[in-house]
């Protein structure tokens, strides 16, 4: 491909941007919806069904999720091949983070292909009565469960640490202290998302951690009314 300099610049910036919007936003939404599994089978299935009823869902899914992910993924793999990892010689913390950004990206290629196939296109999934039960069944296989753990941690790392790269590429964090703060923020995002993500995974196995004080809004006597059994 013959790109002009400015097109090259724009492509690289588009790669950086798509990582945060829409892909990063989508990851937040995805973990949020998955956390509904903490409220039980009916709550999760209702949330999933509600998503499918979003207006223009087909266009939003194709143009807002698949296309950006495909673009980010292809360019990401190309970018990863231009680096020459040198952790062995120079084991600085940031060099670890640089390398893990690439490793997690490559892991995500496999994970995303597997995960979207199983929970979006597989005919058994599409014909299943309960999406919650289908996922629960899947992850009862320890190998699949382990792969989900790897995928979730990779995605959360990749987004969290990606925010640090984003802040520098776009010039949001220029000074030393600002970059240190960006790094702290990035690690906090990674940790929080990882906890939320893994807890929602456990929820599909019926083992999610959901203590009382987390279920009720502050000051309320009761938690929110939860769907009881009713399928949508």
């Amino acid at each position: 491909m013959n790109l002009t300099d400015r097109q090259y610049f724009a492509l690289k910036r588009a790669h950086s941007l798509t990582g945060v919007v829409p892909i990063g936003l989508f990851l937040l939404e995805h973990l949020f919806t998955n956390s509904k599994a903490l409220q039980g089978e009916a709550a999760f299935n209702a949330a999933a069904a509600e998503l499918a009823r979003i207006p223009y869902v087909g266009a939003i899914e194709a143009l807002g999720i698949w296309l950006p992910i495909a673009f980010h993924m292809v360019l990401g793999v190309i970018i990863a091949t231009t680096g020459q990892a040198n952790l062995g010689k120079h084991g600085y913390a940031r060099n670890w983070q640089y390398t893990l950004q690439r490793v997690s990206g490559v892991l995500l290629v496999f994970y995303i292909l597997f995960h979207t196939w199983m929970t979006r296109f597989d005919s058994d999934y599409l014909n299943s009565v309960s999406a919650y039960a289908f996922v629960g069944e899947q992850i009862s296989n320890p190998a699949v469960f382990a792969f989900y753990v790897v995928g979730i941690v990779s995605a959360c790392w990749h987004l969290g640490n990606g925010l640090f790269g984003f802040a520098i590429h776009w010039g949001l964090a220029t000074g030393r202290q600002a970059q240190r703060n960006a790094s702290r923020f990035a690690m906090a995002v990674f940790l929080v998302l990882t906890i939320v993500g893994l807890n929602s995974l456990l929820a599909f196995a019926g083992k999610g951690i959901y203590p009382d004080w987390l279920t009720k809004p502050h000051g309320a006597e009761h938690g929110p009314v939860v769907y009881e059994g009713g399928q949508h």
Binding site: R6, R94, Y98, Q101, F164
Partner: peptide
């Protein structure tokens, strides 16, 4: 800026930040 906004320019930095350590 024109000179560093193409192939090989600023967007090819991967933020490993080894440079500043060395």
């Amino acid at each position: 800026l024109d000179a560093i906004m193409g192939r090989g320019g600023i967007v090819d930095c991967g933020n490993a930040q080894n440079c500043v350590e060395a």
